[in-house]
């Protein structure tokens, strides 16, 4: 089983290595753009935001959130659009299925690859944030395994959608209904503490909220007591969507 997963992963790595010069640009440039727009531009207007007992600069507040968003986006994009193209247009999965690889190995390899994309993007972004002194070490190093866990959760969710959409255009729906609201309302750009109870509860249901909690804890080197809960919620998402993705993809590929 595990060997097959590695084989699928290696195929994607081989392709990535050919295009790495282009692939590594977005995670390098995107945080720079965000830091410029929100950190420098908005910071002046906002000043400091309350965090825990004290106050922190707006730049410090959003930097870990950008990491979490990056983790979500990379895996989710990879296991929706990119996996769908491989499955539907390039027939890559069909070719793999005629070899000793099983559907489960192919799909798991894809999700692990999606999580790997999250890890690569996180590592690149950490370089930038470290230069701006926005990550506390050594706790910051734990961002790497966290990126894998988060990537696996969001990748599994993406792969589940890949298992059910009829057409590539339909991915607009999960992006519009899940990814964009999470991007905006997971305590990413403004603290949830000041909000009324019901938006707070809604935000608590979103997995990104918990991932943001975790990246903040690691970036600041200060762990809130909610860490086990947040980590548990991210893992729960994997536990739900990974088997669902396998079931839906098996149903889609084996007829």
């Amino acid at each position: 089983m595990s060997m097959g997963i590695l084989r699928v992963w290696q195929r994607n790595l081989d392709v990535y290595r050919q295009n790495w010069k282009i692939s590594f640009m977005p995670p390098l440039l995107e945080p720079l753009l965000y830091l410029a727009a929100f950190g420098v531009g908005l910071s002046g207007l906002i000043g400091e935001v309350p965090y825990g007992a004290g106050k922190i600069s707006y730049l410090t507040f959003i930097a870990p959130a950008l990491l979490a968003i990056n983790i979500m986006n990379n895996a989710f994009f990879e296991n929706t659009y990119a996996s769908f193209v491989r499955m539907y247009y390039q027939k890559t999965f069909a070719a793999m299925m005629a070899t000793p690889l099983s559907v489960e190995e192919i799909i798991t390899g894809e999700i692990v690859w999606g999580a790997t994309k999250s890890v690569i993007a996180t590592a690149i972004m950490m370089v930038i944030l470290t230069i701006f002194n926005l990550i506390h070490y050594p706790t910051g190093l734990l961002l790497i395994p966290l990126a894998f866990c988060g990537g696996f959760a969001f990748g599994s969710m993406g792969m589940y959608f890949t298992g059910i959409v009829f057409h590539i255009e339909l991915f607009n729906l999960p992006f519009f209904l899940f990814i964009t609201p999470m991007f905006l309302f997971s305590g990413t750009f403004f603290p949830l503490e000041g909000m009324p109870p019901w938006p707070q509860m809604l935000a608590t249901a979103l997995p990104l909220t918990h991932l943001v909690d975790l990246t903040r804890g690691l970036c600041y080197g200060s762990f809130a007591k909610s860490v086990p809960l947040a980590l548990g919620y991210v893992l729960l998402f994997s536990l739900i969507f990974y088997p669902l993705a396998l079931i839906k993809m098996r149903r889609r590929l084996i007829k």
Binding site: M3, R11, D14, Q90, K91, T92, A94, A95, M96, A98
Partner: peptide
């Protein structure tokens, strides 16, 4: 197996198509 659809991997070169495939067979 040669399937009816063209399942050649467009992301890889021809030789890579063969060597990557060989890896699936260990």
């Amino acid at each position: 197996v040669c399937q009816q659809d063209n399942t050649i991997d467009p992301d890889l070169t021809i030789i890579q198509n063969l060597t990557v495939f060989a890896r699936y067979f260990n």
